[in-house]
Simulated scan of single mutants.
Amino acid sequence: MKERPNSANAPSICPISRSAVFAVSYIYSEITNYFIQRQSSGFVEGLNNKIKVIKRRC
């Protein structure tokens, strides 16, 4: 039976991968909600973008 490597011998995760894993785990419920119920905040994000464009033009 092979021994499980301890944390001292295990390779470390690069900082970029660590931050990506954290980001996905932080918004996991929103990601799964899209695939389960096909709900997203796309409409609201688009509306916010249009408002910002109008504010910039003024």
Rank of each mutant, 00 (worst) to 15 (best):
I13K: 03
I16T: 10
S40F: 00
I13F: 04
S19N: 04
E45V: 07
V21R: 04
A10R: 08
Y34L: 00
S40T: 01
N48F: 06
V53Y: 08
S40H: 01
F35E: 11
I27V: 15
K55W: 06
Y26N: 07
S12F: 08
F22D: 12
S7K: 13
Y26G: 02
S19V: 02
E30H: 12
A8W: 14
F22P: 02
R38S: 05
K55V: 13
R57G: 01
I36Y: 03
E30I: 07
R4I: 15
K52T: 08
K52E: 11
A8H: 13
S19E: 08
V53H: 08
K50D: 05
A10W: 02
I13V: 14
I16P: 00
N6R: 07
I27Y: 12
S29W: 10
K52H: 09
R57T: 03
S19R: 07
C58W: 09
E45A: 12
I36G: 00
S25A: 14
S19G: 01
C14Y: 11
E30S: 11
M1K: 06
Y26Q: 03
S41H: 05
E30Y: 11
Y34N: 00
K52F: 09
Y28R: 12
N9D: 07
R56I: 00
L47Y: 11
R57H: 03
K2C: 04
K52D: 12
R38C: 01
I27D: 11
F22C: 09
V44S: 12
S29L: 13
F22W: 10
T32I: 04
P11T: 05
I54T: 13
S19D: 03
R4Q: 09
K52Q: 11
L47N: 04
V44Q: 14
P5T: 01
V24I: 15
Y28M: 05
A20S: 04
A8S: 15
I31M: 01
A10K: 05
R4T: 09
I16H: 08
A20K: 07
F22E: 14
N33C: 00
V21K: 07
E3F: 05
N6V: 06
P15L: 12
N48Y: 08
S41Q: 07
C58N: 15
N33H: 01
M1F: 06
K50M: 05
R38A: 04
N9V: 01
R38V: 02
S17M: 07
G46P: 01
S25Y: 10
R38W: 04
S17D: 07
K55E: 07
K2Y: 09
